[in-house]
Design a protein around this nucleic acid. Structure first.
Lengths: 334, 334
DNA sequence: CCCTGTCGTGAGAGCGCTCTCTCAGAGCGC
DNA sequence: GCGCTCTGAGAGAGCGCTCTCACGACAGGG
């Protein structure tokens, strides 16, 4: 334990022959300080290797210069290989880096974990809170909003309590289904996601609407975004509708599971059954056959959430809703 | 902005009819306070919804109760779908939660990002630093160690400057290769990982050693842990050694790429060529055929790193090195 | 020439907490 | 009954910073 006492403002001030206040002004970029004094202060800072003590600053400014990113640890989507998790983090991180703020990551798994998150965020230990893939109707965003703590969700919160960033699920799904229809597919089924998550709900709605508009009946099985659930749902669909000739899966992972089931059932893809997924994860290009899918800009979600939050935190005008575009990526499965 | 003034120690003290010091004692779990007074204080805390101001506490205790996890943003391994990243975070997070500390996540991509990490960690804004998959010979761990700031790496740092946690690469690889030998494979090739990363180096060494001990010549191609590189390396190997009958790939992603190349080349797996990967990522169970691979306990790495760091930070005795076991998972590709 | 305004700097008061030091009072031996 | 130790609680000093306010110097207008 080297106890090399770190230099304080005081030390810098003495060395530069000015007052603490002046050093503070220079360090924080005030323009009202004479050029040569600024120079002297900066030299002293460099010579002493001065680094401001954030705790002391926080104590008086009431800013922490850090924001929390809350992720539900248990959520299937988060820790499987669908890359939503790393993608969002990466986006958030980039945007925070530009703003010179810190990222405090909290995985809220257990009930105890949730309490901890609540204590920490409501205790104003961060300047704002980002929620990634909310599970159901968590009251925390609303609570934070009421406490005046900026918060942003990814995906529309069920109670509309805070601003959110989401992708155009409906548009993406609609394009995917339209593509299948254009290709002459007659019996288009879907493997839907969990119906307590916005992504699950919206993607199913998009499927229903587009199909209804074309006068086709919906063929629905429900999964939970995982491969296993996709494989199981596919079996169910084949049982109930042996004549289906296309499937839209609400996640690439489920599409992957479906692909396996189809192969086991002896159906050729895309000849017998066309398959389209959603997400465009890394793996989608490497399935057999490569997966046609709806790409969503995950990293952008993280970035937009962060931008929105920072605007809220600094009192700038901000939108209640940001919707990012999705895109149909054509490969070989459809 | 609701400016509901948050209650301070002072307020709690007044309400409970005691001094600030006593409230502090109760809040921090000192035992030298009479039971009924503790009770009164706790009631006041609950009634007022008091939450300690961490910044104020940090200012005097010099503890921040948070630790930094540094990840190289650019590293191929980190943001592809090999799940090393989420796995480590999850492990770290669980262990920190138990210790009631916060996780500050920093992605050090650019040179500017690296500077930022250095300033932040050397500025003692965290109680300790965790490095995930170091790239080459980063001097930062050593610098931190010299500054008396606890740090732990995943994988042996090239300069041995700080304690580290790693898995038993050699043992795992050795078991995999021995398994291939036992199955009567004669021409066993490897797709190695990048040779500037410990994981890449050690896994290749394990392959060489085991093969040499059995009197077989090494057949080596080098990749960078990604699918594409695995596919390319496999092509190279088939070109150079058309008679090979087994491949050990240093990552599942590369094994996946190799699988595709082998299929394109008309080789059957495992009949013509046996394939073994390393990592046991989620996807390994879903390749065609399902991948035999060496499992490494990623989440445990995160947990062990954190435990080690916390021990260092609290001045308890700690090991310089923790090696976690690997395990051969037999599926169908070998 | 004085008064007012402007600009740049310093003095000093806290921000909310912990921790040392002090002190009151209880218990006990002689 | 005196003085000792011991326990439990309070007083008060700061941790390092920001920010308001005051103040001196100088310029310009009356």
């Amino acid at each position: 334990m080297t106890t090399a006492q770190r230099p304080t403002l005081e030390a810098v001030a003495r060395r530069a022959g000015v007052s603490r206040a002046t050093v503070s002004r220079v360090v924080n970029g005030s323009t009202t300080v004479a050029e040569e004094i600024q120079e002297a202060v900066r030299r002293a800072v460099a010579e002493l290797g001065y680094v401001p003590n954030l705790a002391a600053r926080t104590l008086v400014t009431q800013r922490t210069d850090s924001i929390a990113l809350i992720m539900p640890e248990a959520a299937t989507r988060v820790f499987s290989d669908d890359q939503v998790f790393p993608g969002i983090i990466q986006g958030v991180s980039q945007e925070l880096e530009a703003a010179d703020k810190q990222l405090v990551l909290m995985l809220a798994g257990s009930a105890a974990g949730h309490d901890r998150v609540e204590r920490y965020t409501l205790g104003r230990h961060v300047d704002g809170v980002l929620f990634a893939s909310l599970h159901g109707a968590d009251p925390l965003p609303g609570t934070l909003a009421r406490a005046g703590i900026p918060a942003v969700c990814s995906g529309r919160p069920l109670d509309d309590s805070v601003p959110y960033v989401d992708v155009d699920h409906l548009g993406g799904v609609s394009r995917a289904v339209a593509y299948l229809l254009d290709a002459g597919r007659q019996r288009i089924a879907t493997i839907a996601g969990p119906q307590d998550m916005v992504a699950g709900i919206e993607r199913l709605a998009g499927y229903r609407d587009t199909l209804a508009a074309a006068g086709h009946p919906p063929l629905v099985a429900v999964g939970d975004f995982t491969r296993e659930s996709g494989a199981a749902a596919m079996r169910q669909l084949l049982d109930r509708h042996p004549d289906l000739d296309a499937v839209f899966a609400a996640s690439d992972l489920m599409a992957h599971g479906a692909l396996r089931t189809l192969r086991e059932a002896g159906r050729r893809v895309p000849d017998d059954v066309a398959v389209i997924g959603f997400d465009d994860i890394e793996m989608a290009a490497y399935t057999d056959p490569p997966l046609t899918t709806v790409r969503q800009p995950i990293k952008e979600i993280g970035r937009e959430m962060t931008r929105l939050l920072l605007r809220m935190a600094t009192g700038q005008p901000f939108e209640q809703t940001v919707i990012l575009p999705t895109e149909l990526v054509i490969r070989e499965s459809a």
